[in-house]
Amino acid sequence: MAHIDYYFATISPFAYLAGTRLEEIAAKHGATITYKPLDLMALFSRTGGVPPKDRHPSRIEMRAQEIERQAKKTGLPLNPKPAFFPTNMAPSAYAIIAAQNAGGGDLGKLAHGILAACWAEDKNIAEDEVIKGCLKTAGFDPSLADSGLLAGAETYAANLEDAVKRGAFGSPFYVTDSDQRFWGQDRLDDLDLHLAGKI
């Protein structure tokens, strides 16, 4: 059975624009997924990237255009200038880590719900009530937001180290158990073809 390690940040617009396609592709091929939320700004600094606000204006402008184009392609609602971006990624990442450890709900729905809260609903995903609402909607106990904070912090840091070791440098980033790497939601079709044994 194929396996995918999914490295992403809970404030990443491109992870949001992936929608639930990763989960659909994994289900199609009987693949499993490990969700590995991480600190994207730290990943950038470790792998030669630059936070969006510090990039050259031409890169900032291109990113803004690309986000809106991709939103139109996917049909996902998007506010290109969300009210709470950037915000602290750690609390929402800890909740995903706790939910993955606890089981019983839909992790894909949780991850997408948190991303949508930022990029489509103008909610602050660093706030407990927002996180608890996302947990509940995805079938998890909302109290997971209050538990396992130490373990969450340790796993969050470990996810960053693992991402660097595995060659990830952005979000979303998908790495298969055969070490095939796919960067960006626009490479999900390639991941699908790879799992089908076509590329």
Rank of each mutant, 00 (worst) to 15 (best):
A2V: 08
I4W: 07
D5G: 01
Y6G: 03
Y6H: 14
F8R: 04
I11Q: 10
I11P: 04
F14W: 15
A15D: 02
Y16P: 00
T20E: 11
E24L: 04
E24Q: 13
A27T: 09
A27H: 10
K28M: 10
K28G: 06
K28A: 14
T32W: 01
I33P: 04
T34R: 09
Y35G: 00
P37C: 04
L38K: 04
D39Q: 07
L40P: 08
L40V: 15
A42K: 14
L43G: 01
L43I: 06
L43A: 01
S45A: 14
T47R: 05
T47Y: 02
G48C: 04
G48P: 09
H56M: 11
R59V: 03
R59Y: 08
I60G: 02
E61K: 12
E61C: 02
M62R: 13
Q70N: 13
Q70R: 15
Q70T: 15
T74N: 04
G75V: 12
G75T: 10
G75R: 11
L76A: 10
P77E: 08
F85T: 04
P86H: 12
P86G: 08
A93Y: 05
Y94F: 15
I96M: 13
I96D: 00
A98L: 11
A99R: 03
A99I: 12
G103F: 12
G105H: 07
G105D: 05
L107G: 02
G108V: 06
G108E: 02
K109P: 05
A111V: 14
A111W: 00
G113F: 09
A116M: 09
A116S: 15
A117D: 02
A117C: 01
A117I: 07
C118Y: 03
A120T: 10
A120N: 11
K123F: 00
N124E: 04
I125Q: 06
A126Q: 11
A126C: 12
D128S: 15
G133Y: 10
G133P: 03
G133S: 07
L135K: 09
K136A: 15
T137S: 14
A138L: 06
A138I: 06
S143C: 04
A145R: 10
D146Y: 00
L150Y: 06
L150S: 13
A151M: 12
G152A: 07
G152N: 12
Y156N: 06
Y156G: 07
A157K: 13
E161M: 03
D162N: 08
V164M: 03
R166S: 10
G167P: 11
F169G: 05
G170T: 09
S171W: 02
V175F: 05
T176D: 01
D179H: 12
Q180M: 12
W183C: 08
L191E: 01
L195R: 05
